[in-house]
Simulated scan of single mutants.
Amino acid sequence: MLPEIAEVKYFSGKRPDEIYTSLDMSVNFTFTDLGISGNDQDTRLVTGLIKNANPSYEFFEENEDVEKDVIIHRFDFQSYGIDDEAYNIMYIACTGNNLVQGIFSCMYKDRKEWERAALEVIKTVSQYQGGR
């Protein structure tokens, strides 16, 4: 995603380290090295904190996947934007000793056609080396 577009879409001072988007910007993948060390248990703790901080979201499932000895803790939810509803999958993984957070998002109405592909991309977080 071009930096000037990222500034508008992610208007807070803290933007993801890596942002990948579709040409129409309706589908996004983000990856962020949280800059803290942790372990697999911490992924569950961070997940709980994120969920508790966002009570207006409608949460669906919570899962753990193991890819190349990396536990990826993920959950999906529906959020609400200015003009439409979004489907999101947020995930936390401990790669080495670093905690990495990622988010997949698309229009809620398109979630069925994107969910499987998103889960395949999320599995690759075990290879993430960080954007810092």
Rank of each mutant, 00 (worst) to 15 (best):
Y20P: 02
L34M: 11
A53T: 13
Y57G: 02
N98W: 05
D110W: 09
Q101N: 11
F59V: 12
G35C: 09
F59Q: 01
L49Q: 11
T95M: 13
N88L: 04
T47V: 04
F104P: 00
D110C: 10
E18L: 15
G81H: 03
V125A: 05
N28A: 14
A118H: 01
K9Y: 11
G13E: 08
R44P: 01
M90Q: 10
G38Y: 02
N97S: 15
E61R: 03
K9H: 08
E64C: 09
Y20W: 09
T30C: 05
R44C: 02
D76T: 08
A118L: 01
N28K: 05
I50V: 12
E58V: 08
R15D: 05
K14Q: 09
G38S: 06
I36R: 04
D42C: 05
Q101G: 06
E115P: 01
F59A: 04
D40S: 10
E4C: 12
D65I: 09
R132M: 14
I19F: 00
V8C: 10
S26G: 11
N52S: 15
T124G: 14
D83P: 03
P55W: 06
G35Y: 01
I122W: 02
S79Y: 07
E7I: 04
E64T: 11
D83K: 15
L2W: 09
D84P: 14
L2E: 12
G81D: 13
